[in-house]
Simulated assay, not measured.
Amino acid sequence: MTEAKTRRRGELLEEAILEATWAELAEVGYTALTIEAVAKRAGTSKPVIYRRWQSRAHLVVAAWARQRPAESVTPDLGSLRADLVWLFTRLADRTAGMMSETIAGVMAEAFKHPEVQELLRERMDSAPLTHTVRQIVDSAVAREELPPVVLPRLAARLPLDLVRAEAVFCGAPVPEELVEAMVDEIYLPLLKGLALNRPPHKEPDGPPQGGPP
């Protein structure tokens, strides 16, 4: 008896679609990528893809997210600068493997579609990067390299923005000397400035209880 072919569903089907998307990106780039070609490569149909991802940009962002390596433990290298150089170098290495034309295409699409802008913002704000940056800053505070710092959302996201912009506009991989310049000339001064501009400690109003008027 001939064995019936198993129909892919759920995660198996989505994995096949995302793998096909990334393969298409590697072959033709973002501009020439079509949902039809992805569907053909994945052995499925355009309606199946559109039920899961509402646009080409949404699909590419999902495929891009799937390519990110598993997050490793954030090292404590003994100094804020060393930890930041590690982080920026890791971002540069990752970006070099993500095809700058693809990144540029997704960003161009985002400028055209507000809903994609929101999707990218949500992904960046919830990405492990912001947690890693805060871990690095907290370690520096614990070593008393910095006073306690309230890290704004945009500041936590800035390492990725800096590395990505350089990769898109000037080409990847980002050279080591430029990685160190981003740390020394931009991000370290930013963190120190945020520490200096902390809101002053507010004394309680009125005299202490039981004290003189």
Rank of each mutant, 00 (worst) to 15 (best):
residue 65 A to E: 09
residue 94 R to S: 07
residue 56 R to E: 00
residue 180 E to M: 14
residue 89 T to K: 05
residue 21 T to G: 02
residue 19 E to K: 13
residue 173 P to L: 02
residue 46 K to S: 08
residue 139 S to W: 14
residue 188 L to G: 06
residue 198 R to P: 10
residue 186 I to G: 09
residue 68 R to N: 10
residue 30 Y to K: 01
residue 116 V to E: 00
residue 152 P to C: 03
residue 210 G to D: 15
residue 153 R to P: 00
residue 188 L to S: 01
residue 51 R to Y: 12
residue 16 A to L: 04
residue 210 G to N: 15
residue 71 E to V: 11
residue 189 P to F: 04
residue 137 V to S: 14
residue 133 V to I: 08
residue 174 V to E: 07
residue 116 V to C: 05
residue 119 L to T: 13
residue 90 R to Q: 06
residue 61 V to H: 00
residue 133 V to D: 03
residue 187 Y to I: 12
residue 201 H to M: 04
residue 117 Q to F: 13
residue 71 E to R: 05
residue 37 A to V: 02
residue 142 A to H: 08
residue 106 V to C: 07
residue 37 A to L: 06
residue 130 T to N: 03
residue 38 V to K: 10
residue 104 A to N: 15
residue 18 L to T: 10
residue 117 Q to E: 05
residue 57 A to T: 03
residue 93 D to C: 09
residue 51 R to V: 08
residue 117 Q to W: 02
residue 142 A to W: 03
residue 7 R to A: 15
residue 96 A to C: 07
residue 95 T to E: 05
residue 155 A to S: 12
residue 40 K to L: 04
residue 34 T to R: 10
residue 100 S to R: 13
residue 138 D to K: 13
residue 205 D to Q: 15
residue 137 V to D: 06
residue 158 L to Y: 13
residue 53 W to C: 07
residue 189 P to D: 11
residue 2 T to P: 08
residue 210 G to Y: 13
residue 129 L to G: 14
residue 196 L to W: 14
residue 98 M to K: 06
residue 84 L to T: 08
residue 115 E to K: 02
residue 54 Q to W: 05
residue 147 P to L: 03
residue 205 D to V: 15
residue 24 E to L: 15
residue 17 I to G: 02
residue 158 L to G: 07
residue 16 A to Y: 02
residue 143 R to A: 14
residue 24 E to A: 09
residue 111 F to S: 10
residue 118 E to S: 01
residue 86 W to E: 00
residue 86 W to C: 11
residue 38 V to H: 12
residue 163 V to Y: 03
residue 94 R to C: 03
residue 81 R to M: 11
residue 188 L to N: 04
residue 110 A to L: 00
residue 7 R to Q: 06
residue 164 R to M: 07
residue 167 A to I: 03
residue 52 R to T: 13
residue 23 A to S: 10
residue 26 A to E: 11
residue 199 P to D: 15
residue 175 P to A: 01
residue 163 V to G: 09
residue 94 R to T: 10
residue 193 G to S: 14
residue 70 A to E: 08
residue 103 I to N: 01
residue 47 P to A: 02
residue 129 L to D: 02
residue 183 V to R: 01
residue 158 L to E: 03
residue 171 G to Q: 08
residue 24 E to C: 04
residue 174 V to F: 04
residue 147 P to T: 14
residue 85 V to S: 02
residue 36 E to W: 12
residue 161 D to T: 01
residue 206 G to P: 06
residue 132 T to C: 07
residue 174 V to P: 02
residue 145 E to L: 04
residue 159 P to M: 10
residue 41 R to D: 04
residue 124 M to S: 11
residue 62 A to L: 00
residue 25 L to Q: 05
residue 60 V to S: 03
residue 116 V to S: 05
residue 48 V to W: 02
residue 205 D to H: 12
residue 109 E to W: 00
residue 2 T to C: 13
residue 201 H to N: 15
residue 76 D to T: 12
residue 187 Y to H: 10
residue 3 E to W: 09
residue 54 Q to M: 13
residue 84 L to E: 11
